[in-house]
Amino acid sequence: MTQLSAQDINVWFGQRHVLKDVNLLFPEREVTALIGPSGCGKSTFIRTLNRMHELIPSAGLGGKVLLDGVDIYEPSVDPVGVRLRVGMVFQKPNPFPTMSIKDNVLSGLKLASRKHADPNGLVETSLRRASMWNEVKDRLGDPALSLSGGQQQRLCIARSLAMDPDVLLMDEPCSALDPGSTRRIEETILELKEEMTIVIVTHNMQQAQRVSSQTAFFLAEDGNPGQVVEFGSTDQVFNQPVDLRTNDYVNGHFG
C-alpha cells in the first residue's frame, strides 16, 4: 500500500513565491493529471514529489510530502531512497547517449549500485512493460540515440520501470512527440496504472481525459503564486467544473 500526498506545499525560487498551499492526495494505482497554463507551477510541483526540486540552487520549500506517512523532506530521509521509489520521466527524452539500449534499461541498477539476479530478464520485462520490446529486441546493443524520439521516451519509461518504482512521475512526457508516439505512451500509462501510482503533467486536455481518473487544475494569476484552483475526479473537473476559471480553461478559452 503506497500512498503519496502533498500537504501545504509552498515553493520559492529565491524570493519569488511560485507555488502556494498545494494540498493533493494521490490514491494508489490511479492516474492523477496536473493541468494548467504554462508557468503555473505544475512542473515545479511534480519535481517536489521526488526531491528533484532541491537540485535547483535557489529553491525553497514549505510544507510536507508524505510517502506512506513519512515526510520525505525529513533530514533523516535519503533523497536517493526516495527517488528509487518515486521514478520520473522528463519532458524531453533523455536516454544516456554513451550507453546502448540495453545498458540504458539497466542504468538505474548501475547508478544505484543495485544487483539483479537476472539482468537480461529485467531488460525484457521492462521493455515489454514500456511496450517496445518487439521493436528493439534485435538491436539491444545499438546506441540509445539511434532510436526515434518516441522510442527514446519509451526507453526512458522502461529505464524507470526497471527500478520497480511505486510511483511514476511524468512531466509532460509527450510534449516533444508526434501523435502516434503519444498514443502508444498513453496506452502504456493505462497498462501501468494497474501496478503503480502515476502523476502526469500535461498540456493536452484530451490526454488528461483519456488517461487520468482525477485531475488538478493549477493556475497562477497576475504574478501571484500558482495555486490549485480545482481538484477532483477527471470527469467532474472537465464536465462540471465548480470554478469559472476551470471552466474557461478546459473549454479552451485561455491558456
Binding site: 527517488r83 536516454p95 542504468s107 548501475k110
Partner: peptide, 25 residues
C-alpha cells in the same frame, strides 16, 4: 542538465551520476 537529472531521478548518487553519465558524455 537533463542527463544529470535523468540519472539522479533513477536513484543515483551524485558521484555515480557523474562517473557513469556526465563524464562519459
Amino acid at each position: 542538465q537533463e542527463l544529470r537529472n535523468g540519472a539522479l531521478a533513477l536513484g543515483s548518487s551524485a558521484w555515480k551520476a557523474f562517473w557513469l553519465v556526465t563524464m562519459p558524455a
